[in-house]
Nucleic acid binder design. Sequence first.
DNA 1: GCGCGTTACTAAAGCGTGTCAACAACTTTT
DNA 2: AAAAGTTGTTGACACGCTTTAGTAACGCGC
Lengths: 356, 356
Amino acid sequence: MANNGPITKAAAVRDRGVTMNDVANYAGVSRTTVSFVLNNRSTANISEETRKRIIEAVQELGYRPNAGARALASQRSDWYGLVTEIVTAPFAVNVIKGAQDQAWLDRRFLLIAPSDQADAVGPNQGMEDAAIEKLLEQRVEGLLYAATFHRGVHVPQSAHEVPTVLINCFDADGKLPSIVPNERAGGRVAVERLLLAGHRRIGVINLDPNIPAAVGRLDGARDALAGAGLELDPELVVSGFATADGGYEAACEILDRYPEGQRPTALFCLNDRMAMGAYDAIKERGLTIPGDIAVIGFDNQELIAAYLRPKLTTVALPFEKMGALGVQTLAALTAGQPITADQQLVDCPLLERSSV
Amino acid sequence: MANNGPITKAAAVRDRGVTMNDVANYAGVSRTTVSFVLNNRSTANISEETRKRIIEAVQELGYRPNAGARALASQRSDWYGLVTEIVTAPFAVNVIKGAQDQAWLDRRFLLIAPSDQADAVGPNQGMEDAAIEKLLEQRVEGLLYAATFHRGVHVPQSAHEVPTVLINCFDADGKLPSIVPNERAGGRVAVERLLLAGHRRIGVINLDPNIPAAVGRLDGARDALAGAGLELDPELVVSGFATADGGYEAACEILDRYPEGQRPTALFCLNDRMAMGAYDAIKERGLTIPGDIAVIGFDNQELIAAYLRPKLTTVALPFEKMGALGVQTLAALTAGQPITADQQLVDCPLLERSSV
DNA sequence: GCGCGTTACTAAAGCGTGTCAACAACTTTT
DNA sequence: AAAAGTTGTTGACACGCTTTAGTAACGCGC
């Protein structure tokens, strides 16, 4: 069945949709040649004229490659899977954005699967396993596993079948690479900012003291103080629930405990929600921010930090960057780089607003 | 090549990964039979014994169907595409969640593609077209197109190749079905709540008066007032930027304009960010919420509404529900329901907190 | 006029699955 | 006892693409 040169558009296209065969027929070449041209195979020599004819045929017929068929034939999918508890943490969406954008740049697709009821104690393995299973059925080349708050996690066994990178959490079993915020450096940066503004007596509104975020941020605070020849006064560290109410109560406690002269002149709130509560406690007492009391937060929950009055100076959790870095790391692993349990620390940048 | 009954696991599985052929060999049946069993083909009669042997083989070998190959062979992908400006609107993530959850229930996958720089005036067609093109290459069976705020949009031509449903926006060309919040009913519900609390003089802090959200919500407010035999006093409607600062200024204007007796006793803020600013204006004047002034918002931006003190009573934008409904609508369309330009209105529920 | 290297292209064998037509071995009806 | 189902299973083609191993045609040196 020799090809007698180009044929008409109508004759080339069947019912179902334009395939590579249709393009080949239309251009009067073999399907192989079309494939070579579309994939820029440098090993094959295609004359400029033929190449041009094929490109024209593609445009003329509106050919659109079938990604699934390509994946099947080439045994590579260009897909990564992202498993995350998207529900519970509205701001973890930034991980998705970072990963999505990076994947887009790398011409890869991100399949997102929910793992809703997962929690630190005992993940709802049913849903999580099913999510990973579904992703593996799609033949993703790698997995990203993102948590909503920095913690150790146990990753389902099936995740070990492809390269996997943890984001905002780390492998409690110490086998998988992970990407976490540099909490300690962030805590340091926050307190250094307060020191720079002249504050020497700094109150700390702490989270649950056992979680990685609290440990790291407090260590960072100590680092900063030590750099100025100071120590962290344990009395000035008050823990509370990680909510606005918790922050309000903790702030009240610190503010009411001392007479005016000895009162801290600045509060380092370990998250923005608590800072929100602290604002109220401060304002209630007729004090001004940052005039009487400076406040610095952590997390940079945009909707809080950017809209508090005055706007909250805070240290940002680099979700977007972690997402992007996750994809890059995955790209390196799927390209053959050996898998180690490295933990990559990502800086938490200080966002200057108006509360210091 | 007759099958002589079951073979060993090692013999069945080659290098690449377990395929349906491996399962068939292991179970001593043909691949067709395995396919029938796995797809529950009711037209084929499979003996209970054979079925059991196949299921066992699947588990024993850890067989995992190849979704891409299945899609290729069956010409159905079980994939939907979601195009959205995920970046700019942190809270539009709820659309994703709603859609994702519903898709998960329907055993479908959601491929999410970013269309970042799109805006109301002139979408960045380059990126948007590319996103849709990529989704079509994946052979998605339908498209969801979500906007971050309620508006009319022009959808790229390629989106018309598969069933498409618009979420939180509507087709300016009047051809595609869409799902939008019932702004008017929401506005009514908000003002009715204030009326119920006994308020008769209600100030309105308005958005840009031209956008659909403002038009609808104000109409709703009028509806509610009319129901109580009242009219909306145009003097009490103040527009401002849709930010906390804008809300602060608008609230100041309303509050300072009247002596105490004639001052509105309640403020209907057309979004939560403006309500946040209004809070400050009210508190600054030594007034209490809701004692002196009741406040009701709109949008239910969780991080604001749930953490303001007192917590903000507000009307929720049903993003999650719209996302879910989008998937359901798409399912109906891909199942063959004719495509119309229907606009589905989704109720905006009142969330009672403590500011009324 | 033959071997040899280049250039430009193609035939054909997969990739892993769905699905239809067919078939062998029974059972029931006529 | 032949015809007509019924049950359980399979062979073979199709889906749209990649990729390996070619081949035909041509120019070159000797």
